[in-house]
Amino acid sequence: MRAMKAAPYLLSTPALLLFGAIVVVPLAMTVALSFHDWGQYKGIEPVSILKNWHEVFTDSYFLEMFWRTFRIALLVTLLTAVLGVPEAYILNRMRSPWRGIFLLVILGPLLISVVARTLGWALLFGGSSGIVNKALMSMGVISSPLPFMFTETGMVVALAHVLMPYMVLAVWAALQRLDPQIENAAVALGAGPFTVVRRIVLPQIMPGILSGGVIVFALAASAFATPAIIGGRRLKVASTLAYDEFLNTLNWPLGAAVAVLLLLALIAIVVASSRLVEKRYAQVFG
């Protein structure tokens, strides 16, 4: 009987040891690091002070940077939802083999290096002579070239592209769980196509949209490669700032404080929104 009780712990020992040593300890060390002191010449001093945290919370530079990070993440989330939800719905109504082919086309980029995909956007934006501007101007959408490189607009578009598969995937999974007869039932009761989407389909896939949104938001807020390439050295978000503190300025304690704050803020937002979603839908979808 005792052997039975110990079994699950024995089975998970390798994973527990690894995660204890390589996740929990380093994270704890990072939190500790954020309380250390640092000077241009003296380097890192292992003391416990609130200097970095004080700086992060009072300096308007950091406030603005965090605000920018979450603003971009929110816009990316909205953009992926506005484009991804209808696309997932359209995809779901396609017949084979088109359904499978386009699913592969849309989800496939998830597996292509994010550096290569962002490079593509850098080429498309490419200053005022970029293809996107030429296309938009020839269609008459804009009259003069829009700046995309080194701007938030550019970051939002590129990040929305990078993270779009996650949204489509989440909504797709929700659509798969729908009983196709339910749409027929609504039609038989006199609902038109628009009513079916608004009153029947959307409310049912809302949990999927929201969970997709949470994933996209978290990944957008912590994205690094895309903001680094599109934003360059000029436009910083939390992760690129932390990177600079670590590998350029070498002020590790300050970088650690930024990183830990990003982690805490994200956990708070994600946990709170997941709770909200769960509570809202517990009764309906169990």
Binding site: L27, T30, A218, F224, A238, S239, Y243, A259, V260, L262
Partner: peptide
Amino acid sequence: PHVVLGIA
């Protein structure tokens, strides 16, 4: 966030 893991 992978940035945080990278730093840790």
